[in-house]
Structures are given as C-alpha cells and as structure tokens.
Design a protein around this nucleic acid. Structure first.
Lengths: 233, 233
DNA sequence: TAGTGGTCTAGACCACCGG
DNA sequence: CGGTGGTCTAGACCACTAT
C-alpha cells in the first residue's frame, strides 16, 4: 500500500486542465459538479472550488450557478501585464535612469482629454511634459494631465526633481485604471525628443486613473523606437 | 441595536483597500496579521485570507510567510488583457468578418522563429499567411508558423475556409502563452495587404503558445492602421 | 525556532438561475 | 422549485523565512 499525500488545489486544477487539454472534454462540454469531482478525487469540495475558480479566472472554463461548469466555447487568450514605474523599468533593464522636465503649466484641456478622464465640467488641469532617459538616451516621452481637484498636493512638488509618474504612483493610489495601446508615426517634435526621425513607428501607452469616480490623471507615454511590451510570464 | 450581517471577503478587501487609499498605511508599511484583522473585524481568518489574496493578486500588497503583509513599495499597474479569436473580435466590433488565405507551405523557419518557439533542433514548420477582413476591409495580417510535431492534424484542414487562428484555438489548447506588443513601419508588401502606405505606423501582436514544453505555434499579427488594444474590465 | 501566511477539511447556509 | 456554484466558519496542520 502506498500512502497518498493529500491533494492540493493545484493538483486538482492540473488534473482538470489535463482532462481538457487531452480532449476528454471539448469546448462547450459540461464538467462534473464540484461535489462529484471532490468525491472522485477524494478531497473536500472547497479544494475543488479553489481549483475551478483558478481555471475560471484564466478563461478556460465558465461557471454558473445551477448551470454548472462548462469548457469555454470561445476561449480567449488572457494575459496579465505589469507596468512598473518608469524609473524601475529602466533600472530593471539594466539602464541608468535619468529624467528631464520639459514643461509644466496649468491649462485648459482639449475635449479629448476631458473625455478620457470622464469629466463633464471643463476646468484647468496641470499639464506636465517630461522625458525619461536610460543611460542618457531618450526612453519615453510623457504628456500628462493631472486633475488638481483630486491631487492638489502636486503643486507643492518640484517636478524637475521627482517625476509626476513616480509621485502619483506613490502618493495617489487609484481604484480604477484604463490602459490603451497603439502605434503612431512620430511627428517632428516627438522625433526630436526621442532622437529619431519623423515618421518612425512608435509604441504608445495611454493610461488614465481614477480614485472611485474622481479622475486623477491621464498620460500618453510615447516610447523610444524598438520598445516592446511583454506579458509577465 | 442593529444586527450586522456577516462580512464577506469583499467587504474585508474593501476595508483594507480603503485604509491604504486613505493613507492610513503607506507603501512599505506592515499590515496587521490576518488573525488580528479577522478578530478586529469579527470574521474568520480564512475570510481575511481570501481578501488579502485578492489584494496581493492585484499588486497592491505583498505577502510573505513570517514576514507578514506589506503595502507594496513599488506598486505596479497590473492589467488583464483578453485577446479573442479574430473572427469574434471583428464581430464584437460590429463588423462582418471575412478571411483570405494568402499562402501556405512547409518551410524551414529562420532562427528568429525557432528561438521564439524555444526549439533547439531545426525542422520544417507549416507557414501560413492570411488576411482577416472586417466589412471587406483589411483588418489584420497574420504570419504564422505551426509546429507539425505538435499539431499534425492541421495538414488535414482546409485553411482557405477556416483560419488557422480559429482551428488552433478550438483544437489545440495551450498551457503557456507569451505575448509581445510593439510598433513597426509598414513595408511595401505589408502596406499593400492592409490598404495603407509604406511607412505607416502599425501595431503588432506576437503570440507564441506551448502545450507543456512542446511548441504549438508562433504568430505575428499586424493590425490595420488605427488599431487600439484596450484592457478588459 | 517561532511567527506568519497557505491550505485542507467538514459542514452549513446562501444566491442565483435553469427547467 | 431544486440544483449548482459561492461563501463563511472553526479548527487543524503545513511551509516558509525572518530573526
């Protein structure tokens, strides 16, 4: 007799995952009830629950009360992205971080910015343009709008020393964050800042954050040529 | 006396989250032990555990045995992306989906492709080039390499009818997926397929999948001008 | 080695929703 | 209405690691 060690929820998850990978269940199929899986694998139902929760989170199965658990008909590729503070990103890639404040002034935002922030009443925002450097080479150009109602303390910060990116992340935790990725052709001014030629294809990250419903900031970060964004494993 | 209903783990999560948002705990601070939070909120420790797990998953806190739970020093913006089958993506945006097979042939992959698939021994792969359409307009150009050892059945599929994208997703579940995003300048041929001009900035999605350690496919999907990728949620 | 998070269990009740 | 997943509890033991 071999003494089997207790099953962990990861074991259960992998068992079910393997059953799906092997074709034992195909998209649309209904899986056994949690309780049945539990008794057939000889573990507690809550262990199965934990395993199925994980499979559900990763987009492989769909669960509904009474409806049971089904292999997703339309599987999605679900990925997690981690976007660190720019300083850390540069340092993690082995570069020496540098930072230049380009411009900082209160001004009336264009409608596009108001819309991104989901603001209804127009009001002046703080606009900050800055350049992040890696080993003294341009790394990322950011054009940021900050809501002074939500983050008035930013006016007391010397943004030529500490980047708005860093100050905000450390001092203004958000409860919601929208991200948007796309490509643009560099215009003259942008190309100049990033040390490339007008027309170069650049990767852009737009990020807008709120605390509850109050807008904090929206930023358009234009990366240097060749920049790539990877999933975090 | 009001009778308080039982606390859910989401209540606990929000309570702790709010304490951090309000500045009661700042980055680096140590939070109370789960057991203490449990008794102070009058719920079970496993309820607190569930809540803290969620906060940890979302990148707000860091947990270590014996070390306790700390507010993350270097908060990351953590986002989840859902990338559906291209046909679904087009349809969800309200377009009529179309598909054209451009070329399909077995050939020796360049080193770059081998490296992406983490293959050591060179061997012929199936290369498939295809164009996805939305309302008869070019939507996405894909250049795909498929590993015939892992997915030999693909040779029996008529890829002029069903896209490799769709067949693979439905029939070859993967256990690992790498994604990579960047921008390129359209070359003549690409511009022609996508109905734009050479030099246009295009957003590119590269995806490579494995089942366990066996490579399945790697694909470079070049999107039409103006394409944007958004976070789910 | 001792403190802390991670997990498992068995049981109970609830919430949702399909038939 | 009844079946299914979702959650809470109380307790136990384990695994990791800071001290």
């Amino acid at each position: 007799m071999t003494v089997r060690s207790r099953l962990s929820w990861k074991d259960v998850r992998d068992t079910v995952h393997d059953a799906i990978l092997s074709g034992q269940y195909v998209p649309g199929d209904r899986l056994p009830r949690d309780a049945d899986i539990a008794s057939s694998l000889n573990c507690a139902r809550s262990t199965v629950q934990r395993a199925m929760q994980d499979l559900s989170d990763s987009g492989l199965v769909e669960r509904r009360r009474k409806g049971g658990t089904h292999v997703r008909l339309d599987p999605v590729t679900r990925a997690t992205l981690d976007i660190p503070i720019t300083r850390r990103e540069v340092e993690q890639k082995g570069g020496r971080y540098g930072y230049q404040l380009i411009r900082q002034q209160q001004q009336t935002p264009p409608h596009k910015v108001l819309a991104a922030l989901e603001m209804t009443t127009p009001q002046d925002l703080l606009r900050v343009e800055a350049l992040h450097l890696s080993d003294c080479q341009p790394y990322m150009l950011e054009d940021r709008w900050i809501c002074l109602d939500t983050a008035p303390e930013i006016l007391d910060i010397d943004l030529s020393v500490q980047s708005a990116n860093e100050w905000l992340v450390l001092n203004k935790p958000y409860s919601r964050c929208d991200l948007r990725f796309y490509a643009i052709s560099a215009d003259e001014k942008t190309a100049d800042f990033l040390g490339t030629n007008a027309g170069a294809a650049l990767f852009v990250i737009e990020r807008t954050t709120w605390i509850e419903t109050a807008p904090i900031t929206t930023v358009r970060a234009i990366t240097r040529p060749g920049y790539q964004l990877l999933t975090s494993s």
